[in-house]
């Protein structure tokens, strides 16, 4: 879908891209990097709008320097910044953009109506866009990128400025662009966390260099953990600490504040590495044994950010001591299940 080969872009003062080589397959791909990491420069080059200093890039099998126009006909682009004139309606605007992509007038109208409906704009599409909320504006921006039915869309920071609900809706919409519409997506963000739910593949660049490129599963398939939160009682004034001590004594791997996101830094949440059903039992029994109230016990996957942090920390910190009791246990139920299947058949 997108192939770059030691792609570099140098400006007089800064190097925006430094010998970047990536190979992006169809699907939803996240492009992650801090501000100024070179994400927007990469998109510009891929659209054939800026020449690379050196190296080559291909989009949909077309060379960006030679076939820029052909690429732009098959690709959609949603810019990061606001780009909507306030005095026209979403319908008029998207129809105009569809015609700029070469759609005949009737087709432009039909596709506009369809696309706006798919991104979730209904009656309000006839009102001037100046009165739209940020969420609605983001939807129009997405619609204009999709209206000509591209094979690939570049979405530059589509969740910028959205509240948590709007952010979730936008991420869901991006997922649908691939699953329901069959359009591949390259979405940029400086937040790893929001891409892991949406993307099949994540490419991380920093300072114009490729830091890592791998599937989201690889990032997050590492052990799952249980988030456990308990009440304090008279007997145990600090229930969390007591539980922690008891669990460690029982051989579980416990950590607190495991996430980089704000949610987990409360200090009242314990993260127990789950190695199968018996970890749940262990937590339940331990909590009951201490007489604490169990507020919640939920399974959570590792976040991509943690994987990065772990990777960074791995070199410095020693691995936590693995307990043979819990490490060996999970294979037992699997063996039983595998053995049971042929009998059933």
């Amino acid at each position: 879908m997108i192939v770059t080969e030691s792609l570099s872009k140098r400006f007089p003062r800064v190097t925006a891209l430094d010998r970047l080589s990536v190979d992006i397959a169809p699907g939803v791909t996240g492009l992650v990097g801090a501000n100024g990491a070179g994400k927007s420069t990469l998109i510009k080059i891929l659209l054939g709008l800026a020449p690379a200093t050196e190296g080559t890039a291909q989009v949909l099998g077309l060379d960006v320097t030679r076939d820029g126009a052909a690429i732009r006909e098959r690709v959609g682009y949603m810019p990061e910044h606001d780009c909507l004139p306030p005095d026209v309606s979403a319908t008029e605007f998207v129809v105009h953009m569809a015609r700029m992509s070469g759609l005949p007038p009737t087709a432009a109208r039909e596709r506009t109506a369809d696309t706006l409906r798919h991104v979730g704009l209904y009656e309000e599409r006839y009102r001037p866009m100046g009165g739209y909320s940020t969420g609605m504006k983001q939807r129009v921006k997405l619609a204009q990128a999709l209206v000509h039915d591209p094979q690939l869309v570049f979405l530059d920071e589509p969740t910028n400025g959205l509240d948590p609900v709007g952010r979730d809706e936008m991420l869901g919409l991006i997922r649908r662009v691939h699953t329901d519409f069959g359009i591949s997506v390259l979405v940029t963000s400086h937040l790893l966390g929001e891409l892991e739910r949406t993307c099949d593949h994540v490419v991380v660049i920093d300072g114009g260099k490729l830091l890592r490129s791998s599937s989201t599963e690889e990032f997050t398939q590492a052990t799952t953990s249980l988030a456990v939160e308990v009440t304090d009682t008279d007997r145990c004034p600090d229930g969390t600490a007591a539980l922690r001590a008891a669990l460690v004594a029982a051989g579980a791997v416990v950590s607190d504040a495991a996430g980089a996101d704000g949610l987990s830094s409360s200090g009242h949440v314990l993260y127990v590495e789950a190695s199968g059903e018996q970890t749940h039992d262990l937590v339940r029994d331990t909590v009951a044994g201490l007489g604490l109230g169990l507020i919640r016990m939920e399974q959570r996957r590792h976040h991509i950010a943690e994987v990065f942090r772990d990777a960074d920390a791995a070199a410095a910190a020693a691995a936590p001591p693995a307990t043979p009791a819990t490490a060996g246990a999970p294979s037992a139920p699997h063996t039983t299940q595998d053995g049971g299947a042929p009998d059933a058949g």
């Binding site: 126009a69 006909e73 105009h96 015609r99 700029m100 992509s101 070469g102 759609l103 005949p104 087709a107 596709r111 369809d114 798919h118 000509h148 039915d149 329901d180 519409f181 069959g182």
Partner: peptide, 23 residues
């Protein structure tokens, strides 16, 4: 109605230029 792909004509640069002119 699910998403429908567009397989009609794409009229290209000259058409887009004319459209921008008339608009």
């Amino acid at each position: 109605i699910g998403y429908r792909h567009y397989d009609g004509p794409r009229l290209g640069r000259a058409y887009a230029r004319r459209s921008l002119f008339s608009q």
